[in-house]
């Protein structure tokens, strides 16, 4: 294995882990719901990067056949896997956003702390719909 590959490996896997950690940090420390969801998106991006990097082969072509003999190609499986993973992420994000909209309608805020307080005082969440501009 050449050192060029090692360097690339550090770059790609390092970037993936960095994205993952930044995303997790965002999810753990931010109170604004949308920001938490963005953190989740970062986490998923990092993992997808790690997955696709696993299929890399140096000097290899994209796995698309053209006229002529087929060259050495990268592993096509991780590419298909992250395609699926990205779509799953989109689905979850879409549903999460609809939940955020619903929560905002009931509790009038997208701040985790505020929601927590209001939940404590109105555990069933069927109380008066607080109509107020979000901070």
């Amino acid at each position: 294995m050449t050192s060029h590959s090692d360097l690339l490996g550090i770059m790609f896997y390092g970037a993936a882990v960095a994205l993952l950690l930044i995303g997790l940090y965002t999810m753990l420390t931010r109170r604004h719901l949308i920001r938490v969801l963005l953190g989740l998106t970062l986490v998923e991006a990092g993992v997808n990067l790690a997955l696709v990097a696993a299929g890399f082969r140096p000097e290899a072509a994209a796995p698309i056949l053209g006229p002529g003999a087929a060259p050495a190609m990268v592993d096509p499986v991780p590419q298909a896997l992250i395609l699926t993973a990205i779509v799953i992420g989109v689905g979850i994000l879409a549903f999460a956003l609809s939940l955020v909209v619903r929560i905002h309608r009931t509790y009038g805020s997208v701040d985790l702390q505020v929601i927590g307080e209001r939940l404590a005082s109105d555990p069933d969440g069927t109380g008066s719909e607080i109509r107020r501009r979000a901070p």
Partner: peptide, 26 residues
């Protein structure tokens, strides 16, 4: 609203866990 809040917490935990699981698969 309570269901939505509970589901969101469930979702955040679940989606994060699943992303980590995918890393394990990677």
């Amino acid at each position: 609203g309570a269901q939505a809040a509970a589901t969101l917490r469930f979702l955040l935990l679940g989606a994060t866990g699943s992303a980590l699981a995918l890393l394990g698969i990677a």
